[in-house]
Design a protein around this nucleic acid. Sequence first.
DNA 1: TGTTAATTCAAACGATTGTTTAAAACTTTT
DNA 2: AAAAGTTTTAAACAATCGTTTGAATTAACA
Lengths: 211, 211
Amino acid sequence: MTQRDTKDRILDAAEELFASDGYVGTSLRGITTAADVNLAAVNYHFGSKEGLLAALFERRLVPLNKVRLENIETVLREAEQKAVRPSAGEVMKAFLIPTLEFKRNAPGARHFARMIWRAFLGGDRGMQESFLTRVAPVMQRLLDGLSLALPGIPREVLAWRLRFAMGAAGQVMVHDPEQPALMTGLRLSEEVMQKELLEFVIGGLEAPHED
Amino acid sequence: MTQRDTKDRILDAAEELFASDGYVGTSLRGITTAADVNLAAVNYHFGSKEGLLAALFERRLVPLNKVRLENIETVLREAEQKAVRPSAGEVMKAFLIPTLEFKRNAPGARHFARMIWRAFLGGDRGMQESFLTRVAPVMQRLLDGLSLALPGIPREVLAWRLRFAMGAAGQVMVHDPEQPALMTGLRLSEEVMQKELLEFVIGGLEAPHED
DNA sequence: TGTTAATTCAAACGATTGTTTAAAACTTTT
DNA sequence: AAAAGTTTTAAACAATCGTTTGAATTAACA
């Protein structure tokens, strides 16, 4: 089973390099050297550099999105059964908690998390497209949930608040404890940091709205 | 005065291309073609591609930072004179309003704004460094102001909340109305969008904090 | 074990990258 | 108007990019 070995080694090296140097900033030679495989292996196993990127998305994002969507649906279903409104915090946690866990747990996933959020936050062009088409359905349901939770706030406004929340969350996702800090005084543990993110995001989502 | 003409044409073309394709994703040939100047002009006038980037920062970021810092100092000084605490909203507005205005007003500055926030949000490596060293002093004073405004919240937590706020603000800054939207239902005018950002950010900064 | 298929390998492909060169064209100064 | 300085130009530089090739090697099946 050298094949699966080679493919996985390439995927692992690629997501680490894509995360730190970006898609265009990473060369196939850099990847194959890090993975200790032949240069041609990428084109043999994945067809092209773009094919490699697609395989990375398939490996991690698809299962993650499945969990996130299920979580959101569960919150919405339970609220409906009890005939109460879900809270903005519940809805947002249904999305954010698996997302944050995903980054914290799997060691390789951490790099993928950085890569994916760089794409979202406005990074490489090619990445952004592959990424957006895959998360769009999750975002839709998330927005549905927030609409239910905060009926006093127009949907367009909520769409923007959701995007703001994503921007804030991205700061945790792209944060690398090993890298020099963006600001001094950012020395919180990952867990505390994530609790703080939830506080901030919920505070922002539920902020009073005037027309 | 063909010289100044050439330099400015290069700067204008560069900030537009850097904004949409990133630093590594943009070639000098693309820039010089768009600027309608000879390829060698970049190296002649700016020394190198990196020198061009530095010149871009110098042209826009330095004066912007000056305004932002003055605004923050004014808020802090006035609060001190009145012997009251500044509000988190006041402090944050002192930074955000010139920032958002900067994007909205100058037509070329819009591209620079996108470029700069892409750098902050985790884009190109070289950009991030040039950028961070220049905004660090502004961030420090901003954090000082927030510490005054919200004495009940530890400084490390505030540092993270500030970073979250920057992540949220980045979503407005990188937003391009001409580009396909990240989510459906994001069809607000720039002004409304900016008002919403302030609501969200202040709500997040002032969110209740538990240890 | 012999045959076929899948994988790895070194080498090269053309295209594009940032940068340099030296002559030509243009300005400014004397 | 001649000289000196500045800017523009076309051409080429070596380096690197993603991709392809065909032979060498390994694995799977008969």
